[in-house]
Amino acid sequence: MFHGSARLTVHGRRLIVQRHQAGWKQAHIAEAMGVSRKCVKTWIDRYAAEGESGLVTRSSRPHTSPNRTPDEVEQRVLDLRHRERRGQDWIGLELGLPPRTVSRILRRHEVPYLAECDPITGDVIRASRATGVRYERERPGELVHMDVKKLGKIPDGGGWRVHGRSEQVRARGIGYDYVHSLVDDHSRLAYSEILPDEKGSTCAAFLLRAAAYFADHGISRIERVITDNHLSYRRSRDMAAAVAALGATHKFIRPHCPWQNGKVERLNRTLQAEWAYRHAFTSNEARAAALAAWIEHYNTERRHSALGGRPPISRLPT
């Protein structure tokens, strides 16, 4: 394989040698081939020393790399990536390495990009639809994203993560938890609750509590609320009244375009990977009890690459 800027193939190098053997001067060969005199001399000398094999393309990698990252450090990067399933910015800060160094280590070991992996298992999957148009509102409260994530409840004694996949475990389904979430577009401040359903009245009451949580953290006004087109959002009078009580405008995403509500969709994915499925909980109550602490960690400690490695609280009014 030849790089995109290569002037010569093996055939071209052989032509240089043939013209030299025919009595051409090196300067004339260089002009005819459109390369430098040094390039011509290199291939003539290499052919003289090694014969036909000397014309074959070789790797440009140096024989030694004294500044290469030590193997034990590379292994720490790989272990942390496998265990935490986080990106180069997060891993770099954890290990005190430049993110670019972490990226090169991951690529050198053919570790797939996070966007190509299932957030729960880490298995490579087909990437979902993405948009190249990224945006961020200028101030907290200008736009908030709202959504519900449905999670299967954990039977007492644990589910399949504790006992393994089997028909007995599969048959013990006891219903679902509905995780309601609200995310501020500018700061990424998040608030989540586990509720018994996703009815309009439930969504409306959650929105008012979430707005109070945001107010306690310096976001005194919510201007716009964006949701998908679920009936509990679009047709509920309770939901419309709650949005009006906040003095906000209700926006809806285009049908079948969940990436337009991407910030809360990304929170849902993070919730699954770092809270719901990170530990093998032995009861549904234990998992539910861990949510509030995780949200506090998310808002005050967890680093966000979109915020320059800082937590959401760093963007809130002081």
Score class of each variant (00 low, 15 high):
Met1Glu: 05
Gly4Lys: 07
Leu8Glu: 03
Thr9Val: 00
Thr9Trp: 06
Arg14Pro: 01
Arg19Gln: 15
Trp24Asn: 10
Ile29Gln: 04
Gly34Asn: 11
Lys38Ser: 10
Glu50Met: 13
Glu50His: 14
Glu50Gly: 00
Thr57Asn: 10
Arg61Ser: 09
Pro62Met: 15
His63Thr: 13
Pro66Lys: 05
Asp71Met: 14
Glu74Arg: 12
Glu84Gly: 04
Gly87Gln: 02
Gly96Val: 09
Leu97Ala: 07
Arg104Gln: 10
Ile105Thr: 12
Leu106Tyr: 05
Val111Ser: 00
Leu114Ser: 02
Glu116Ile: 00
Ile125Met: 15
Arg126Val: 15
Gly132Val: 11
Arg139Tyr: 15
Leu143Trp: 08
Met146Cys: 07
Val148Ser: 09
Lys153Leu: 10
Ile154Cys: 08
Gly158Thr: 09
Arg165Leu: 13
Arg170Thr: 06
Arg172Gln: 14
Leu182Tyr: 02
Val183Thr: 06
Ser187Tyr: 07
Lys199Gln: 12
Gly200Ala: 07
Ser201Arg: 15
Ala210Met: 03
Phe214Arg: 13
Ala215Asp: 12
His217Cys: 04
Ile226Cys: 00
Leu231Lys: 13
Ser232Leu: 08
Tyr233Phe: 13
Arg234Gly: 00
Arg235Lys: 10
Arg237Leu: 13
Arg237His: 15
Met239Tyr: 12
Gly247Cys: 10
Ala248Cys: 02
Trp259Arg: 12
Asn261Arg: 11
Glu265His: 02
Arg269Gly: 14
Arg269Pro: 00
Ala273Ser: 11
Tyr277Ile: 05
Arg287Asp: 03
Trp294Met: 04
Glu296Asp: 07
Thr300Ile: 04
Leu307Cys: 00
Leu307Met: 10
Ser314Tyr: 11
Leu316Val: 04
Pro317Leu: 07
